[in-house]
Design a binder for these strands. Structure first.
Lengths: 337, 337
DNA sequence: GATGTTTGTGCAAACGTTTGTATTATTAAA
DNA sequence: TTTAATAATACAAACGTTTGCACAAACATC
């Protein structure tokens, strides 16, 4: 491995001059810089980042902590963050917590020991509050939280606009002429789900429809509970459902079909998250898209800017066949061109 | 930040003793080790990994380079690798290449500068051979390639058993009574697709069916080309298709349906990759599953073992409704319990 | 031409750890 | 009791970079 000392020796200068030349300090003559740069290229020099980091007490590595890398949402967040960070000269160190508190603490410790320049994280379900973050990370490492955030912690936060999104989704169902719109609401211990429920309620109110608590179905997240929720909604006379997840929306669709009803003519469905399968089903499923890539970008930008503000990333309603009564089913994917 | 010198000072010993005590060297008295450990805990000491790495010339970071983090396959590979590496005390540094050669070189350089303990990688489409890897990485950093490998490069390789997998998939179609089985074969400049085609051919041969080149449809990868391929297969009198991808299988299913035929009664379909949507469609799509998580695990294990062997990860045929003539459609997902 | 100000380099310490060698304390053998 | 062996610790250099300070040369000011 060739070092700055080697370059210095080759040029008859000192390592400090080489260091300054390579880092673009104004304290070296233009001529010297050129000579150094040329020699560095010639000798195939690459700065030893580890040594540099030790000396500077900072690294160009940013830690990202997520519950699970291979969940679509998180891998997209990582992709978004990486796109910004890489361009800014940072690398990304990944840890997953598998939703466990202990693993989250361990991940934070890993980040601190590696002296990362900052940490972007989304908390494990198992983490009840944020005290462990401050304890482990100290206050010298900037923190950015995304999606699952503790407002008690300092630093920037990047979240989805769940209220507004659910409001739009519900309003869309109203605009399509559905009149008894229920919801599969998810778990209320999650802030995100609670906000979606609020948005749903507000949309009904604002559009002159009654808010009927008997057609709010809680704890419906996965396909099976979505199916059950769908059946209950039918019994309760619903003609549409805003679903706080896509898997439960899928279950609900199957429930509606099992009763011989048509979608979207007889029953409308909007899911949430824009999972990739929603665009592939027949009918395609309307979904309120999270924007994980953008959340990743915003998290990275928040880290780079160093400001501690909260960024709200809008959700986007993808109107597809399952809620679109006004036009023919979109069959372009079945019969291309 | 508390250092080993602080601990040493507090105990009236030297930093070297503290270092040895903490790393479990047999050259310190049991009594001293205990005292050091206790003091370290008391003072909240955490080893500075950067300094340690600099001195040792090695780090406990393993680099992973993939074309795109948020592709399902790769994020699962990363998840698998991380599960092994984390347990072994390593952290994972991620770079993506976006399928570009230049980005791959940059990623390799990042890895080298960070003095990673090893690199696990899958090459970008844009990389034509492996010379850049050797040039950039040198021969001191162990390399493990997975999925997209250059056999010319040294080190371990982890690949899927495409030949065997396609063989099994095709044999399965034969066993279900299909007799004119075509294939949507994909791009032949990819080793993986070529191997699948070979496996398909061999299975037909071994089962006494003719290998008919007029029902091998090339360059069919995405949904649209799959739809076209499906139509052509119907015109050619096929009653089944082995598809080298899941998206083209989806297209083929839509083509079959557009002609009013039933699946699997009139026409059988098997896809490849086990994309998550295959289990969610109606009917569910049989698919030849890659095993990305296991490939990640094997890559990490290959790195840890230091051996340069090639590991072949078996593919697994997931028999679902689209090719299963022998039993009723699997409706458990529609009507739970 | 003496004094003050830039400008460009060199010197040397520092970042926190690890590790080969030297030194001391302890024990065993003669 | 002396000597040899061993055990435990101290010493000091190293890893490669960065950076405050010192220093010299070049230039400007009066």
């Amino acid at each position: 491995m060739v070092t700055i000392s080697d370059i210095a020796a080759a040029l008859g200068v000192t390592p400090s001059t080489v260091s300054r030349a390579l880092s673009g300090s104004p304290r070296v003559k233009e001529e010297t810089r050129l000579a150094v740069e040329q020699m560095a290229a010639e000798m195939g020099y690459e700065r030893n980042i580890v040594a540099s980091n030790l000396r500077k007490g900072k690294s160009d590595i940013v830690g990202v902590i997520v519950p699970r890398i291979h969940r679509e949402f998180f891998s997209n967040v990582i992709g978004g963050a990486e796109s910004i960070l890489n361009a800014a000269g940072y690398s990304v160190l990944i840890c997953q917590t598998h939703e466990e508190f202990d693993a989250e603490v361990k991940a934070l410790r890993t980040m601190r020991n590696n002296q990362v320049a900052g940490v972007l994280m989304s908390h494990a379900i198992g983490a009840m509050d944020g005290t462990h973050v401050l304890d482990t990370l100290g206050d010298s490492i900037p923190l950015v939280q995304f999606d699952r955030v503790f407002s008690s912690l300092p630093g920037a936060k990047v979240v989805s606009n769940n209220f507004q999104g659910a409001y739009e989704a519900t309003k869309h169902l109203v605009s399509q002429g559905y009149r008894r719109i229920g919801t599969l609401a998810g778990y209320m211990n999650s802030e995100a789900y609670a906000a979606r429920l609020d948005g749903y309620r507000k949309a009904l109110e604002d559009n002159g429809l009654p808010v009927d608590e008997t057609i709010v179905f809680y704890d419906t997240i996965v396909r099976e509970t979505g199916f059950e929720g769908g059946l209950k909604a039918l019994e309760a006379g619903c003609d549409a459902l805003y679903c706080a997840g896509d898997f439960c929306a899928l279950g609900a669709i199957e429930a509606v079909r099992s009763k011989g009803l048509r979608i979207p003519e007889d029953f409308g469905i909007v899911g949430t998250a824009n999972e990739s399968f929603t665009a592939l089903m027949t009918p395609t499923i309307s979904s309120l898209a999270l924007n994980p890539f953008e959340m990743g970008r915003q998290s990275a930008l928040a880290f780079l800017s160093g400001e501690g503000e909260t960024v709200v990333v809008p959700m986007e309603l993808k109107v597809r066949d399952s809620s679109n009564r006004n036009r023919q089913l979109n069959l372009t994917h079945i019969c291309p061109k």
